[in-house]
Design a protein around this nucleic acid. Sequence first.
RNA 1: GCUGCUAUAGCUCAGUCGGUAGAGCACGUCAUUGGUAAUGACGAGGUCAUGGGUCCGAAUCCCAUUAGCAGCUCCA
Length: 652
Amino acid sequence: MANITVVRGAQQAEYNSEGAVTVYDAAQAVGLIDREVLAARVDGKVVALSYALAADAKAELLTFADKDGAHVFRHTASHILAQAVKRLFPSVHLTIGPAIEDGFYYDFDSEISFTPEVLAQIEGEMKKIVKENLRIERFELPRAEAIAFMREKDEPYKVELIEALPEDAVISFYRQGEFTDLCAGPHLFSTGAVKAFKLTSCTGAYWRGDSKNKMLQRVYGTAFPIKDALNAHLAQIEEAKKRDHNKLGRELEYFTTVDYIGQGLPILLPKGARVVQLLQRFVEDEEQKRGCLLTKTPLFAKRDLYKISGHWDHYLDGMFVIGDPHDETKECFALRPMTCPFQYQVFLNRKRSYRDLPMRLTETSTLFRNEDSGEMHGLIRVRQFTISEGHYILRPEQLEDEFRECLDLAKFMLDTVGLLEDCTFRFSQWDPANPKNKYEGTPEQWEEAQSLMAKILDDLGVEYTVGIDEAAFYGPKLDIQYKNVFGKEDTIVTIQIDLLLAKRFGMEYTDSDNTQKNPYIIHRTSLGCFERTLAYMIEKFAGALPTWLMPTQVVVLPLNEVFADYAYGVAKRLTANGVRVEVDDSSDTLGYRIRHAKLEKTPYILVIGENEMKNGTLTVNDRVHEKPYTMEESAFFDKLLTEIKTRSKTQN
RNA sequence: GCUGCUAUAGCUCAGUCGGUAGAGCACGUCAUUGGUAAUGACGAGGUCAUGGGUCCGAAUCCCAUUAGCAGCUCCA
């Protein structure tokens, strides 16, 4: 006797069964099933509708609206993809094919390459499989039989996967028609539900995500229960592409690249340079207000410095070296990939006491990193970039307060530029099992640093995810993450705790009890990399940055040359008040000039004609107000100046 | 670095079977004039990314390099 509670959204019903019953049958018995139900959640575990309920249980029915439901749906879509590929190309080896956010993929080991034509062919075969509405059945095999089964099917990657499973693991398979795949599941009831899907791209991906392994072919796709949802999703991606900073930033002339200058070395054009200058002034002023000391340190140094810091051992491949790194008899330099070892020299300049701490050093710092050639992307990933880098040298008891201050500063900065609401936090930890000897220090030191950071984060109530093997080589990090228009995530700001490097550099202070101690150090950025921040702002605002950051804030348009002098007078008055103004007195028609200004995303467009001169009023267009509005000139200036001087995080 | 794709005017793109290059927008000149998304005429612009090769002949076919894109791997 089992008492089953079936839940669907706000609806709920009880079902008493004599023996074991499938979720599907229980749900049907209480009248809560229909085609929209894809899977279920029982005891927190996502299961197929064919899952047998033997004891008292609560079965929550999942539709596509539920994240887990969509996941099951798309996982089945990936199996349909694999089945289609095996039908068309039997010699292809299967590997893995999970559902992901917004879609699914499947990795294949294939001799032939999946060109767009081949993808279209595969899509056609997938449609057939959906139409065949094949029943999806689960079965289990003991380990040895599972391995033999996959050997017989000539699926070496599947054999490898099974062999890697723990001894006591349940080894399950899913069969649909002639196709069977090793899979933990769960899946849909049958293939017929996958009504709308599209294969979006084919790219390379390493087997098991390891660059030492063979490169497989990954086919990406997405799937929805109804066609309209698929089309809406594809349209949304097209819209997002229009915001791509790498396209928009070039069109709007924020930056460009030159093939004979090199990858990852963008030219900031006047508009981009202006925005970075404004951001930089804002950052430096704010940091000064908060007690930071600005430094200016060299952009490169002898290798000796990097040997002390550990960069020579841990980061040599990432540095641009001037000279032969392996010839110890000759002088050898490297461009700096980080500012830390340079800024520490400020502390080391003389004997320090506990009274000198905290010492908050900051620098608008240009760095050079020799990224692999495939990594560069617009302004987001470059080889030379400038960050607001700070090192706070602290007594241990100051760590928590100063960490809080760093977080507050970063949040303030991100909020002011309008990006904070889209940020997530990641507690980046080391990997004790990392075989690459990537980290300095002992497990005890890491344990100490990480537990300190965990305590601080918990005290501050920061919601974060944990990233294993994401730490710096000298300590754990709180990374503030941001996603670009394509959903690719990068770090925008980082705050790191370092209990190791002070000792390496011989940094000591005399404490109140007259003993010598190594300080703790926080490495932090306040607004991160200016280039990257600019890129994210271009994407977030589709080029229409907040007014205080726009290279041109107001365009003044005289109706014709009669009004040109007056227009220049207005512009002069605005300029004198710190507003960035352009006058467009070209002979083009007014509508044409307005169109131009709008394409440039100029926040304010001021038309000067008879009315303005006669009445002393101004007709104003801006992004928000579709219809022109008129107001007294002085009131207009007050509003405009207030707005431009305020660092409003939204457009207008 | 790896896999795949791409490179023609400032931008978006045509260019058939290999036969010495084309449009729209942008730009310039002139005329016109104006009230919120495009006034008209004319003009200038290209060593078809770079370097090799095949060929009587290459934007077109082949190879290499450089750069750009998607993804993987790495990272702020």
